[in-house]
C-alpha cells in the first residue's frame, strides 16, 4: 500500500500542528483544496474522533461488519436510521446494544480516520478551516491523540519499517519512540512506540524534524563524526537518550540509577547491521 501513496509527512505534521493549535477545543477542521472541500476532521476536546474525505475507500459500517460476527447489515441499517433521527453517534449505540465491542469500534474508528487523514496529507495545497461546535458528542475513549494517529499512519505507510523499529525498541527495553529518518526523502515520522503510558512527551509527532536537526548539529560540532547515541541526564536520575541506527532515530526515556548501564549493555548487543526493511 505504501508505495502507491504520495503521502507527504510535512503535510501531516502541519495538520498535527493545526490540531494542537485548537488547544483542547471541540469542532471540525474542514480540509479544502483550492476552495473545494476535500474532507473534515472532527475534534472532541482537542482529540481527533473522526475524519472523512470524499475519497475514503471504506465506510465505517463496512469496517464494523468486517470485525463483528454479531452484527448484520440489516441490524446496522436499523441502528443507523435511529441514530440519524436522534443525532447520536452510530458506533457508540452499536456498542451499547452489544453488536460490537468497544475495542472493535475503536479499531474501526482509528482505521477509518487514519485512512482519511492520509488522503488529506496526500493533497497538495490543502488548507484547514476551523468550525467550532457547541457541545462534545463523542465519548473520550473513542478519541485519539496525535501520537497514536501518527503511529498508525506511519505503520500504514511504512509497515516493514515499523516492524523493524518495534524490534529495536523491544531489544533496548526502554519506553521510547522510533522515528523513521530518511535523509533523501526528508521523512521524519514516528513509526513505533514502546510503553506509551510511560512516555511523558505529548508533542512528539511534530518533534521528529527537530530531533533530526539536533542529531545533525551534534555531528557537525563533532567534526562530522557519525553519532551513535547521546544521553542527557538531569542530575536527578532522569535520562533521555537519542539513539541512531541506520534509518531510525530512537528517543528513549531512562529512569533509575542503573538505566544507563543497561542501555550501554543492550546497545552493545544490538546488531550492528542497518535496519532491515
Amino acid at each position: 500500500m505504501g508505495a502507491e501513496l504520495a503521502f507527504r509527512p510535512g503535510a501531516w505534521v502541519g495538520l498535527v500542528a493545526r490540531v494542537e493549535q485548537t488547544a483542547g477545543a471541540t469542532g471540525a477542521l474542514v480540509c479544502e483544496v483550492d476552495g473545494r472541500q476535500l474532507g473534515s476532521v472532527l475534534l472532541e476536546r482537542g482529540r481527533v474522533c473522526w475524519a472523512v474525505t470524499r475519497s475514503t475507500r471504506r465506510r465505517l459500517s463496512d469496517l464494523l461488519l468486517e470485525r463483528s460476527s454479531d452484527l448484520t447489515r440489516v441490524q446496522l441499517e436499523a441502528v443507523y436510521r435511529l441514530c440519524r433521527a436522534r443525532s447520536i453517534p452510530l458506533g457508540e449505540e452499536l456498542v451499547r446494544r452489544g453488536f460490537v465491542s468497544p475495542r472493535q469500534l475503536r479499531e474501526a474508528l482509528v482505521e477509518h480516520t487514519s485512512e482519511a487523514l492520509v488522503h488529506m496529507a496526500e493533497a497538495d495545497r490543502a488548507t484547514y478551516r476551523w468550525v467550532p461546535h457547541r457541545t462534545p458528542t463523542y465519548s473520550p475513549k473513542y478519541t485519539f491523540d496525535n501520537l497514536e494517529l501518527t503511529l498508525r499512519i506511519g505503520r500504514m505507510i511504512h509497515q516493514e519499517r515499523s516492524d523493524a523499529a518495534e524490534a529495536r525498541l523491544a531489544a533496548l527495553g526502554f519506553p521510547g519512540v522510533a522515528f523513521r529518518v530518511a535523509e533523501d526523502e526528508g521523512v521524519v515520522l514516528p513509526v513505533a512506540v514502546r510503553d506509551r503510558d510511560r512516555i511523558p512527551a505529548a508533542h512528539l509527532p511534530c518533534e521528529g524534524p527537530d530531533l533530526r536537526a539536533l542529531r545533525q548539529w551534534l555531528e557537525s560540532h563533532a567534526g562530522r563524526e557519525s553519532l551513535r547515541f547521546a544521553v542527557w541526564h538531569d542530575g536527578e536520575g532522569r535520562r533521555v537518550a537519542l539513539v541512531r541506527t541506520e534509518m531510525l532515530l530512537l528517543v528513549l526515556w531512562l529512569d533509575g540509577a542503573s538505566a544507563l548501564g543497561l542501555l550501554l549493555a543492550r546497545l552493545a548487543n544490538l546488531p550492528a547491521v542497518g535496519d532491515a526493511e
Partner: peptide, 8 residues
C-alpha cells in the same frame, strides 16, 4: 540537563 554523553 546537567550531563551529556555523546558517542560518535
Amino acid at each position: 540537563p546537567r550531563e551529556l554523553l555523546m558517542v560518535f
